Amino acid sequence: ESETFDVELTKNVQGLGITIAGYIGDKKLEPSGIFVKSITKSSAVEHDGRIQIGDQIIAVDGTNLQGFTNQQAVEVLRHTGQTVLLTLMRRG
């Protein structure tokens, strides 16, 4: 069981404050995608409180990250504006 949710964030001096990890899993058993690996102290993400380590980032400002490499996803996140809309999925 999984839930998908949107989080809109405004960057602070730390930026968004997440590091991400790309993961290619076994299609049947484990998900592939871009996941939140860590959250920086005092960052926008930590202050917001809704995003957790292990959440999958589905889209950034409407750009679907399906099939993106870790590096491609980093580039998408790097080129966002001051306000960012993240679409995430959390597995229950």
Rank of each mutant, 00 (worst) to 15 (best):
R91M: 08
G67A: 09
R50K: 09
G15W: 04
L86C: 03
L65G: 00
D61A: 03
S42T: 09
N64E: 12
N64K: 11
L16F: 07
G62S: 05
K11R: 11
T63R: 13
Q14P: 07
G49C: 05
Q56H: 05
G25F: 06
G17I: 00
S43A: 09
G54N: 05
G22E: 15
K28V: 11
T10D: 07
R91Y: 09
F35S: 04
I53N: 04
T19I: 08
I58T: 06
L88F: 08
K37N: 08
Q14S: 11
R50C: 06
D26F: 09
I57G: 04
Q14M: 15
I39C: 02
V13P: 15
L65D: 00
G49M: 01
F35V: 07
D55T: 00
Q14H: 14
E46N: 08
A21M: 11
T19P: 04
S42N: 15
V36P: 01
I57D: 03
I53F: 02
Q71V: 09
I39N: 01
E1W: 08
A44V: 12
L86P: 02
Q14V: 14
M89A: 11
I24P: 12
Q72D: 09
Q82L: 05
S43R: 09
T10P: 05
Q82V: 07
G54T: 02
I51R: 02
L16V: 05
Q72L: 06
E46S: 11
D48H: 07
N64F: 08
Q56T: 04
G15H: 06
G17H: 04
T40Y: 07
I58A: 03
K11N: 10
S42A: 10
I24E: 14
T63K: 13
L88N: 01
G92F: 08
T10R: 14
S38C: 09
D55N: 00
V60W: 05
V74Q: 14
L16C: 03
E8R: 13
K41L: 05
E1V: 11
Q82N: 12
S38D: 10
G92A: 14
M89T: 12
S43K: 06
K28Q: 13
E8P: 07
L86G: 04
L85I: 11
G25A: 11
I57Y: 02
G92R: 13
K11A: 08
K27Q: 13
T80Q: 02
D26C: 12
G25M: 09
I34L: 12
I51W: 01
M89R: 14
E8K: 13
E1Q: 07
A21D: 15
V7N: 01
E1Y: 15
M89H: 13
I57W: 02
E8D: 06
F5C: 00
M89D: 05
E3N: 13
G15C: 05
A59S: 12
F68H: 09
R78D: 09
G25I: 05
D6N: 15
K37E: 14
I51E: 02
T40P: 05
A21Y: 10
T40V: 11
K37M: 05
N70E: 15
L77I: 10
V36N: 08
I53T: 08
R78S: 10
T10V: 10
V74K: 15
T87E: 01
R91C: 09
A59V: 02
I58N: 01
V13R: 15
I39R: 00
L86I: 07
A21R: 13
T4Y: 09
Y23I: 11
K11H: 06
V45T: 10
V76G: 02
R91T: 11
G25V: 09
S38Y: 07
E8W: 07
L29V: 12
M89Q: 14
R90L: 00
V74A: 14
Q66H: 11
K11I: 04
L29F: 09
S38G: 15
A73E: 01
G49Q: 06
V84T: 10
I18M: 12
S2R: 10
I58K: 06
N64T: 11
G49F: 04
G54F: 01
I34Y: 10
S2Q: 10
I34Q: 05
N64P: 14
L88H: 01
T40S: 13
R91G: 12
T63I: 15
D48W: 05
A73Y: 03
D48C: 10
L29M: 15
E75F: 02
G92N: 15
V45M: 06
I39L: 06
D55W: 01
F35Q: 07
N12E: 10
K27G: 14
G81I: 03
Q71L: 07
N70P: 13
A73Q: 06
V74T: 12
I53Y: 01
L16Q: 04
R91A: 09
G22F: 11
L85V: 13
R90N: 05
E3H: 14
G81F: 01
V45N: 06
S38L: 04
G22H: 14
T4A: 06
